[in-house]
Design a protein around this nucleic acid. Structure first.
Lengths: 334, 334
DNA sequence: TTGTAGGCGTTATCAC
DNA sequence: GTGATAACGCCTACAA
């Protein structure tokens, strides 16, 4: 299976490579219709298709972008990737997907490899530890955008949920329905901006509402058993804001184990919509984030940078929205 | 940001490109330790990193594979992709992800573009309509493997669930628990092998068990309302084998709408495990498929082909397993 | 309108 | 041990 090249076509059509190249790039304008036909026929006969790698070497554009996420298995990441791929495909680009599992080493490794592969740009859900590397990229105006997180003092544009607003919306919803005992369930916030922002917003709201903060901060592994312990000791608050879908899963597992009734024993409001929230029993009230919109805005910004060869920075916030279902109890006396 | 090349390094170190190239490829064996040091220093000073595209052009290996799925949003696809990416990364490869939405045109388009980009191999969940194209690839011994589906008479190796076994397991489970009214809910099977196999298995089992077949075959869009109609007319069987997770979602939505109690009014057993099946109320009994194993086996076979430059064909089946939860009623008199 | 030649950044062959 | 030099497949001035 020897690959047929532009040379073979040229030979077959009795013209030079350059003429074929012109033909391929649509510069028909000044070209004998006869030669054009001959080339067309040759291309068809030989089933020729241009080698993109050679083209890339010449043009310095690979028509490929890299997408680096923590884990494609996360619902949010999947949706973001899908929207990015759609956009990219619409512009003739391909997407290389990478999972870091939140490991900075893996992340740095991927970045280097993708750069070596000359990808034209990068969309990243960054870990917290590669600030220097990212800054370097930004300073070279290498196209990069962040999604869902940002890194302090790194001049790279980020597209993310307004995390403060999401917690506030949740908190207010609970408060309006008469709740005064509002906990907050999260995985450890250390090093993850989105979690930190949500947690900070929670603490701030507690302060301004004069409500005692009841944060529960545990690793996903062991979250079920920690929660079970809490439940057994009666240490669970009447309502819980859940910081993300993974934590929600664990909470729901525990609730099932311990036969905790939602919303009667425990009200739940969760950040980020998940597929089953709708038909779960009870339906889970949720603060949804527009993942597709976020992903699309991010690539879109990336493409702009790729075209202008000039990076921009700043954080673009997206507004969450409440989807009210049945997991929050309404206190009558309210 | 002019890219630094091997030439710059050679210049900086006062040696020739070839020597640098040798150094870079670990051919230190016969190389003065002094020159080696000089090159090492030059590389560091210039922050040089080799251009993979140029290398690819020369080597004819891009260290990249393409993965074409119907939709990355499907749980199964996500898990397969993740396992492929893990394997690929472990071997220094990258993965380009493409969504066809089951459109043969999009699929053919992607294949052509990926080939033009010289990816070293392809993992595909194929649509039914590009048999000729795939056959052509196979005949050129271009590395391709299928996942989850196959195409009749196309000599490409496929890794997929034993669909017959999955339905049989479900059917037997229902039967053992005293069910004699067993329906089958699926999206239209036309053109999708996995669905056809499951459906065929269902019909076969009905025949051999002497049970009247009650297939429900509807598009996902409108499935809820179709099911609601059925329910309103009392046309729902006592138990239902659900062909995949998407259909399950729709069914569960309907059940919630119409307040149909599971398993008392309706027993459910679904093919393919989903995250929430475990803590749903009631827990959904499920026939799980080993997505990660399937994905890993597929890439693994692909890499073998890439190394041997020789394709293999045949279908490799993976065994499903029952995860018993609470969505199937046990008839007492059994 | 068509062709020639050089270069994109590597690697590989073969001298020295 | 090290260094020219020729590919790899394509694009693009510049000539003709």
């Amino acid at each position: 299976m020897k690959n047929v090249t532009i040379n073979d076509v040229a030979h077959e059509a009795n013209v030079s490579k350059s003429t074929v190249s012109h033909y391929l790039n649509g510069h028909f304008t000044k070209m004998g219709p006869d030669t054009r036909d001959r080339i067309a026929r040759a291309v068809r006969n030989l089933d020729y298709s241009p080698n993109h790698i050679a083209k890339s070497l010449k043009n310095k554009r690979t028509m490929t972008i890299g997408v680096i996420v923590a884990n494609i298995l996360h619902n949010f990441s999947t949706r973001v990737i899908r929207s990015i791929e759609d956009f990219a495909h619409g512009h003739g680009y391909h997407v290389i997907v990478c999972n870091t599992d939140n490991s900075p080493e893996k992340e740095a490794d991927y970045i280097r490899m993708l750069l070596a592969k000359q990808v034209d740009g990068l969309v990243v859900i960054p870990t917290a530890q590669n600030g220097a590397l990212f800054t370097e990229l930004a300073e070279k105006d290498y196209p990069v955008v962040f999604v869902d997180r940002y890194i302090e003092n790194v001049p790279i544009q980020s597209h993310m949920l307004d995390n403060g607003a999401s917690v506030r919306t949740a908190f207010e919803h609970l408060s309006e329905r008469g709740h005064r005992e509002i906990g907050f369930l999260t995985e450890p916030v250390e090093g993850i901006v989105a979690r930190q922002e949500r947690y900070a917003a929670y603490r701030g709201l507690c302060a301004s509402y004069g409500i005692r903060p009841l944060p529960i901060q545990v690793e996903k592994e062991g979250m079920v058993s920690s929660l079970e312990q809490l439940a057994d000791q009666g240490g669970l608050p009447a309502s819980l804001i859940v910081a993300n879908d993974l934590a929600l899963f664990e909470l729901l597992k525990m609730a099932k184990q311990r036969v905790i009734l939602i919303p009667d024993d425990l009200s739940i409001i969760s950040i980020d919509d998940i597929e089953f929230a709708d038909f779960f029993n009870p339906g889970i009230t949720v603060i949804a984030q527009p993942a597709v919109e976020i992903g699309t805005a991010a690539v879109s910004a990336l493409f702009e940078m790729m075209n202008n060869s000039k990076n921009t920075s700043g954080i673009e916030r997206f507004q969450p929205y409440l989807i009210e279902r049945e997991s929050v109890k309404q206190y009558e006396d309210q």
